[in-house]
Design a protein around this nucleic acid. Structure first.
Lengths: 206, 206
DNA sequence: TGCAGATAATTTTGTTTCGAAACTAGTTGG
DNA sequence: CCAACTAGTTTCGAAACAAAATTATCTGCA
């Protein structure tokens, strides 16, 4: 019983925040895109990554992005290494706008919880999210901290003074310290490896 | 920092569950309506109440309801006491459908949490919800348990064997025991009374 | 090398959702 | 009996959306 009640509360909060998104300036989907591109790491600032994050199709994602681009919130930049991909970046207007994100009311609400409560909530949400993701064969997107592919290699010989270099074991490339906390499409949660081979990046939605 | 992270997780869960709603049979808004009318008390089975619950406009609510009605999930019944109001009720088809609610995956996910975690989460969500509601001058909707207008009156003289009759102090009418847990438009949360007189039921949205 | 198949993004199409505003009809209070 | 209010509906235009087709690019393999 309590499970259903809690689930309903969660849904209700989600709905309220969503409704908050219709603030005249941007739509909920557009806010989400702005948030995503602000927090995605360099590998992941693409329409496809956003589509996956938003649990929608690439077509829809493209349209959302196009609208933001046309109004000067985002700029695109082709990848050097892959001519098909494009990288989206927030303009200064985009960054400034993000400060007015209606979602901030939720952040403030969270802030008013005491620390233990908030921690419990975060852990619980984390678990719920991973259950949802597996039950629906949907990939989740997260940062390096909890990712299987994250590796740290000590360099510098005196261990006490050595610096640790972050690296993505999947791509075999170094990771800038400031990028560790950012969202990544290649995110693979710890302790639940899948056996279906290389990452399927084009999920057939229902 | 942790506040923002937690808020983002919450939003993400909300988004996933929302996407879950597109299951071919009904839309997310329609699922929500079905859930609402299944859980609303007799006072509250109206389009206006649903609009408020869903944090949307009455126009939009009407359309959602109309679609469900046309397809046999809901039936309408005019109020006897007020010729303007209508009361919506789930048909047996509607009830049967609710068993397939995609939202159930969230309930199951909640169920897999251990009890203390779930309780913490519920308390936290509760608090977040009331903060959001006040910050946006939006009414929340809940059941009698936490409502200011809820009164219990002892009847039957030997106190040990007496039965308690539930009553709504706002409307001055008795409440059936089975209705106590249901959602009510007139819900007024405990310990945060407002001073703006009688309930404003037609909030000008933004 | 050349070609088949996969992938990234976009375009297109038709449906659905949504908010806003206008509108109808019933109600309430003076 | 009339003005103000309220419940619900209708209409409209702007989006969000999924689905499918399209283009350009990349990758693997023969």
């Amino acid at each position: 019983m309590s499970a259903r009640e809690t689930a309903e509360l969660l849904l209700q909060v989600g709905r309220l925040v969503q409704a908050e998104g219709y603030d005249g300036e941007l739509s909920p989907a557009q806010w989400m895109a702005l948030r995503f591109f602000a927090r995605a790491n360099p590998f992941s600032r693409t329409p496809s990554a956003f589509a996956e994050f938003q649990a929608t199709t690439r077509g829809t994602a493209t349209q959302t992005i196009k609208a933001l681009e046309a109004r000067g919130y985002l700029v695109r930049q082709p990848f050097k290494t892959d001519g098909r991909s494009v990288s989206l970046r927030l303009t200064s207007k985009g960054k400034k706008t993000l400060a007015r994100d209606p979602f901030e009311v939720l952040v403030r609400a969270m802030d008013s919880l005491d620390a233990t409560e908030r921690t419990a909530m975060r852990r619980a949400l984390h678990q719920v999210l991973s259950i949802l993701a597996t039950s629906d064969a949907r990939r989740q997107i997260g940062g390096c901290q909890d990712c299987t592919h994250f590796g740290r290699e000590m360099s510098g010989n005196p261990p006490s003074t050595g610096t640790s270099a972050a690296e993505c074991l999947l791509l075999g490339v170094p990771i800038q310290p400031e990028d560790v906390g950012l969202l990544c499409v290649h995110f693979q949660p710890m302790n639940e490896h899948r056996e279906d081979g290389p990452t399927p990046l084009n999920p057939s939605r229902r």
